[in-house]
Design a protein around this nucleic acid. Structure first.
Lengths: 218, 218
DNA sequence: CGCGTCATTGATGTGCATCAAGTGGTGTGG
DNA sequence: CCACACCACTTGATGCACATCAATGACGCG
């Protein structure tokens, strides 16, 4: 995500090892000691937080090129779970090594700062979504975001395969799975998308954008 | 906020100047060039993001000792507004100076990383709140969080003055101002708090905690 | 082939939004 | 110093978006 080849070379120096994670298992868990950030090479993750009473919330979906584990820095402990939604491989980047190297390599330092800032801005966007959007807007925004990120990785602008369940989408969007399902159906009726299982084809990108940007109420 | 005196000394070196902000005016705005982070010396801020169609969302409230502006790093532009809710003073910390100094001073580097990570974790918590909590839980969590931060600054554990309107609280919590008001009234009826205008006295901290941690539905 | 998981769809319920009216505190200008 | 206007807030009545409950259908895997 925004890595030039030159930067990638730099990053290589902070990679201690690689690690494979099977679909369904966790890369790290809430409460575990924080040691490293992880750059996703292949595969797809979700991160989720939980409250005491068992409620949980998907806080993000991450794909190749993205970095996870930033939550662990502040208290040297992870505060969320990272679960592989498909078989995955990550680069393990010990954080003390990152700090060490980024003192020497300005580009790396800058890169680390930008990654963290990007995550903050992303979460701001999610807060806007959760705090003020209606179900259709949330799902439209979600689909547009996913397809845009996939497109940046060389995939289609209009077709995607969801790696997560309706329930996980719902958790991320602050909706119940039934509402997610119904909203998909609504979009299909309206001819905006085609859905076959987890395969989604976007027919009306503009229509989706309009849904996101059109406030209904006050 | 977690600053030891020694660390504060360090931080002094990155402060270029001070700036006063009148109540109601902005420290920075969405779209403005990013140059500096700001450490709040006195006063109280809100940060908010807006979508094209004019909806906006308060993404946080910040008080003395906290740092704002992190959103600007990733694209060299601020992506939210920071508005003073009371007359305030901040330390201006040019970001290139921060980067420069944090290459030399490990403690500063670490400190910057922790501040950013803390913000990410905080936002994770807000996402959990917005995505899965009910009105009473949201407000209870909000009050507990505020009073805890104030207590850490030497204020009362049980009394606080809200610097923001009901509408701003509502925006932050994903509720309408009427709902915020009603929920306050409910807490008063239940003898959990006393409210006189923006003065709030917490009578039942435990009761509030229970509200937050008690899931009702499924 | 049968079972478990995930998804769809319908019927009903409810928490919060919306709409609306009124109160109280504050500041301002006559 | 008071009258008025304005704003933040409270409270009530009603409506609606989404949750909940429930039944059924479609894959995919051992």
């Amino acid at each position: 995500m925004g890595l030039t080849p030159a930067e990638l070379d730099r990053i290589e120096d902070v990679v201690a090892s690689r690690r494979k994670i099977k679909r369904g298992s966790t890369l790290f868990r809430n409460g575990e000691k924080f040691t490293s950030l992880y750059a996703i090479r292949t595969g797809f993750f979700k991160t989720c937080v939980a409250s005491e009473d068992g409620r949980d919330q998907v806080t993000g979906f991450q794909m190749a090129g993205e970095v996870i584990g930033l939550d662990g820095i502040v208290n040297d402990n992870h505060t969320c779970d990272a679960v592989a939604l498909e078989d995955a491989e990550v680069c393990v980047m010990p954080f003390d090594r990152i700090e060490e190297l980024s003192r020497e390599v300005n580009a790396l330092q800058r890169h680390v700062h930008k990654i963290m800032s990007r995550e903050i801005v992303r979460e701001n966007g999610v807060m806007l979504l959760l705090g003020s959007m209606r179900a259709e807007e949330r799902l439209a925004a979600f689909l547009l975001n996913l397809v845009q990120r996939l497109h940046a990785r060389g995939f289609s602008q209009s077709e995607l395969v969801l790696r997560m369940t309706r329930e996980e989408i719902g958790s991320y969007l602050g909706l119940k799975l039934e509402t997610v399902s119904r909203t998909f159906s609504k979009f299909v009726e309206d001819g905006i998308i085609e859905v076959k299982q987890r395969h989604v084809r976007i027919l009306g990108t503009d229509a989706l954008r309009e849904i996101v940007n059109t406030k209904v109420g006050t």
